[in-house]
Design a protein around this nucleic acid. Structure first.
Lengths: 105, 105
DNA sequence: TATATAAACAACCAATCGGTTGCGCAAATT
DNA sequence: AATTTGCGCAACCGATTGGTTGTTTATATA
């Protein structure tokens, strides 16, 4: 299936699911109530999220609570790191430019 | 077309393109040499990146240099913000736990 | 001017996606 | 024991994806 976290967060419904279960673990049925799609539809999203280990199951009787593996989110942050360096540098350059303009006054 | 930045970074080739042009602006042909796909294939990716304003064109004669709109990357960072709070809290909790263990010693 | 080159555009393709309905299974509830 | 409920799984569907080849337009170069 070759799924990765970037594909996982590409879908808006999936991002909404992530945001919901970040607060508290939820069952597929409970989640489905927040969206206008079927429980099975949500289950498919949860399957994808599980496949790339963004989500963890906790069985409780016949109910399955899905909870976010928050640590996995750091992978996105890690990838972003290389660009953060750049945009901070650019921001510094803007700072310098502004102070140069100030000096000219 | 309804494209957003999360769809843009979902594809690994596109992420590689982003990383390349983050360093320096490049033409489609130059980019294509880094991958084993056709120039047209790369152009399609560039079109998607352009559509969600992650990339900017700079015409120079008959060549078109594509450069990264680094500021747009902050949108991902912004979305990540809500989760960063959570994982830092969890980390604090771990810290507390570790110091509790230490005290017991 | 004729030719080569850079790149966008269009048409096409198989594979995947997001969604549905219909099932079967296991755990609660009656 | 019979019924309801929560869930995963499978099959199907139209739309989109990532990729290709072919064509057209515009800029360089011989």
């Amino acid at each position: 299936m070759r799924r990765d976290i970037f594909q996982a967060i590409a879908d808006p419904t999936r991002r909404a699911i992530i945001a919901l279960i970040a607060v508290q673990a939820m069952t597929p049925s409970a989640l489905a109530e927040h969206f206008n799609s079927t429980r099975q539809g949500i289950s498919k999203h949860l399957k994808i999220l599980t496949e790339c280990q963004l989500v963890k199951q906790e069985h409780q009787g016949r109910e399955i609570y899905y909870q976010l593996e928050i640590g996995k989110m750091k992978e996105i942050d890690k990838w972003l790191e290389q660009f953060r360096k750049i945009w901070e540098t650019r921001f510094d350059q803007l700072d310098q430019l502004l102070s140069t303009i100030k000096k000219k006054k």
